[in-house]
Simulated assay, not measured.
Amino acid sequence: MPRPQGFTYEQRADGSVTITHAGRAAGTLRGARAERFIGELEGGDPQLVMARWTGNYKRGNERSARAHPRNRG
């Protein structure tokens, strides 16, 4: 799986976390979810963690889906 790029996050004073991708907001986490997210950042690759939490990551089936009869030109 290719490594995601372009994710950043900002932890705000109220405890919420805003995740951005290529300069656009991809998600906002508050409360316990924000705390779990920060905890996961320490244990792994931050780009992969942010991609997983926002749902913006490749699942590995893009090539096979392209060849499906429904998706052919």
Rank of each mutant, 00 (worst) to 15 (best):
M1D: 05
M1G: 13
P2C: 06
P4W: 08
P4M: 13
Q5C: 13
Q5T: 13
G6R: 14
G6E: 10
F7G: 01
F7M: 04
T8S: 07
Y9S: 03
E10T: 12
Q11C: 07
Q11N: 07
Q11A: 14
Q11L: 13
R12F: 14
R12S: 14
A13R: 11
A13W: 09
D14R: 11
D14S: 06
G15V: 07
S16R: 08
V17N: 00
T18W: 01
T18F: 03
T18L: 02
I19M: 06
T20C: 02
H21C: 07
A22K: 05
A22W: 05
A22E: 07
G23C: 12
G23A: 15
R24K: 12
R24T: 15
R24D: 10
A25V: 13
A25E: 15
A25K: 12
A25M: 11
A26Q: 15
A26C: 14
A26R: 07
G27F: 09
T28S: 07
T28M: 13
T28Q: 13
T28Y: 09
T28V: 13
T28L: 13
L29C: 00
L29H: 02
R30W: 07
R30I: 11
A32F: 14
A32W: 09
R33M: 03
A34N: 02
A34P: 01
E35S: 12
E35Y: 12
E35M: 14
E35G: 05
R36F: 08
R36N: 02
I38K: 14
G39I: 01
G39W: 03
G39D: 00
E40L: 04
E40G: 01
E40C: 02
E40M: 05
L41Q: 01
E42H: 07
E42T: 03
G43T: 15
G44C: 01
G44N: 01
D45A: 12
D45H: 08
D45N: 08
P46T: 07
P46F: 15
L48S: 11
L48D: 04
V49Q: 00
M50L: 10
M50H: 03
A51N: 03
A51G: 05
A51R: 02
A51S: 07
A51H: 02
T54Q: 03
G55S: 13
N56Q: 10
N56T: 08
Y57A: 07
K58H: 14
K58S: 10
K58V: 15
K58R: 13
K58W: 15
G60M: 04
N61A: 05
N61R: 06
R63I: 09
R63C: 11
S64M: 12
S64A: 12
A65H: 08
A65C: 14
A65M: 14
R66P: 01
H68L: 15
H68D: 09
P69C: 13
R70G: 01
N71Q: 04
N71V: 04
R72E: 08
R72G: 05
R72D: 03
G73Y: 15
G73D: 12
